[in-house]
Design a protein around this nucleic acid. Structure first.
Lengths: 341, 341
DNA sequence: TTGAAAGCGCTAACAT
DNA sequence: ATGTTAGCGCTTTCAA
């Protein structure tokens, strides 16, 4: 990468002059037009691009604020990042610049490729979201020198912010059983995720102890999207009789599931009751409105930032953990008021 | 901010030694336990935090890759960022590290507060999304030294990637007129945005020339969200008779609008036909499915990155522009196949 | 086991 | 109108 020094040499002038021109201060500094053109030509020829780190190092004296990275997978779960960002924005808005936020996309199960986690040359701390089991294994088995907070994952080594996903599953099984259901099904996103697995386990364990039947042909999985949920329901239907209750582990999939059921003439909640998970904003507006488990994403996001800041500033020592509660949001699709039953 | 130099002084040792300890290389370099503890204690006392810029400058020799920032407002429109990121990911996945991506949140109409745009100390180039009219005015009236690309905004001074929003409005008016509608309404998000204004103008102008009636009481606005769309419909209803066609300028609002209509027993498309805008993924799964204008967000995102890279590498000179086409996605809510009509 | 010092690329103060 | 230079904070080589 071409530096100012090289530009200066090529243009036959000094670094200082080149710097002025390159920063648009040529006129202000009364650099002659001829010189300015020489500099610009040289910069273009060498494909000059300023080194941000050098510029920053030199320019910012006092107010170096910590850089916080949000490590988010760029698979279908990107759609969830908006609530996370809203939580951060809502909490820290107007509090000045306590930190600098960057979103660092990474490929699912390829966290080991992100070597800025090791070198610490990009951010002062990171919030790791959507970590797969491989990603977690990588983190557990390696020395990460940058402070990190795991979002919605458990760990003995690292700090975490999460809800008790197992308990969420238990809650739904309780609800289904209490509402008199004898059979149930599960729609799962096919991502390798602790949180999803725990929800399922909690649900299955409790269902079992209640005698709520969840046969294996009523457990289906699909992509983490509306389309995935739609396909899951189609698959369930193709397999024969439906259960009277259905736990969809992601709201996004639940939206597609509702559509598939509607197309097939299966009434919700009369024929099948549906519970989603997350309490995404639009679940209030599905037809029928979706009952779901509220995931306090916004609060958790703010907690992640606070915890990470404390870690970075060495006010606390890893690992620390914060556990949030999930709760029911009862709407029409399960347990709520429904006009025509 | 404490530096290594200060740590070294406080601990009574040299900078080099402090650096080793702070980077977890203490044992490897056979620094004595006593010294290591002194360093760590000093670091904690001073609240040491490494300076990322300095570290980077020192460490990364060859492969300094350009930093691209996505400037996105942290208002309700954050939900749109996922498609944008997906577009970038989908296009550049596996192409190695041609650039570094950061998402830089900013407050709507406060782009002038983001002075890294002027100082160029944060990124090599930026994609500016959701710019309000004030933001655009700020950009037009100031010398921005960092290469930028405006997403979905027009400008004579800066490079842009957009669709012809006016034309989108025209298309919808055409469709409504051709389908025999005599009256129409508009649901607008209350954000200060060129794109929204142009869609509206295109629609109104063409409606006028067709004799399609759009009385002012059928033009309502609300927040950019499902809730906003829901409230808009409630407002329309409270005002009296509904038009037979409704152009909702954002899909997210359209989802809420459909729910409000359903609640009121107004059938879509039999009583009112609805057109959304954007072609968000979930519009395929609303009940009824939503007809909408496809906005090629993913392609535009990729184009933004490509254009910005060319700008940064000085392969092209600003301003350059790229215009994409929008197109109809006809589903049940307007013009599509509907079982029970 | 530790210290000294060079130098990453840049900007700006100072010198001509 | 342009050149010279110090130094931002850090890592790492070399020396002791």
């Amino acid at each position: 990468m071409a530096s100012i020094k090289e530009i200066a040499k090529l243009a036959g002038i000094s670094m200082g002059t080149a710097s002025f021109v390159l920063n648009g201060k040529g006129d202000q500094m009364r650099i002659s037009k001829a010189t300015q053109e020489k500099v610009l030509a040289a910069a273009k020829e060498l494909g000059y691009r300023p080194n941000i780190s050098a510029r920053r190092l030199r320019s910012e004296g006092e107010k170096v604020v910590p850089v916080i990275a949000i490590l988010w997978t760029l698979d279908t779960r990107v759609s969830l990042i908006s609530r996370f960002l809203e939580g951060i924005q809502g909490t820290f808005a107007g509090q000045g610049d306590g930190f600098e936020l960057m979103v660092q996309p990474y490929e699912n199960s390829k966290l080991d490729k992100l070597n800025s986690l090791i070198t610490g040359t990009r951010f002062n701390g990171a919030i790791v979201a959507n970590a797969s089991d491989e990603d977690i294994a990588y983190l557990e088995n390696n020395e990460i020198n940058v402070p990190i907070v795991l979002y919605q994952r458990k760990s003995d080594k690292y700090s975490t912010v999460s809800v008790d996903s197992y308990q969420s599953g238990v809650m739904v099984a309780d609800l289904f059983a209490n509402r008199g259901h004898k059979t149930s099904g599960i729609i799962l996103p096919n991502v390798s995720s602790q949180a999803v697995r725990l929800r399922k386990e909690g649900f299955m364990d409790r269902a079992h102890s209640y005698g709520l039947q969840v046969p294996s042909n009523h457990i289906v999985s699909g992509s983490f999207s509306e389309e995935g949920g739609y396909q899951c329901v189609k698959e369930l239907i193709s397999k024969g009789e439906l259960p009277s209750s259905l736990f969809t582990l992601s709201d996004q999939m639940a939206v597609g599931a509702l559509t598939a059921l509607y197309e097939e003439g299966i009434r919700v909640p009369q024929d099948v009751e549906i519970m989603g998970h997350d309490n995404n904003e639009n679940t209030k507006f599905t037809i029928p409105s979706l009952s779901t488990i509220h995931l306090p994403v916004e609060e958790m996001a703010a907690a992640c930032v606070n915890m990470l800041m404390d870690l970075i500033e060495q006010k606390v020592k890893a690992p620390v953990s914060k556990l949030f509660n999930s709760s029911f949001v009862i709407r029409q699709s399960c347990g709520g008021v429904c006009e025509d039953n």
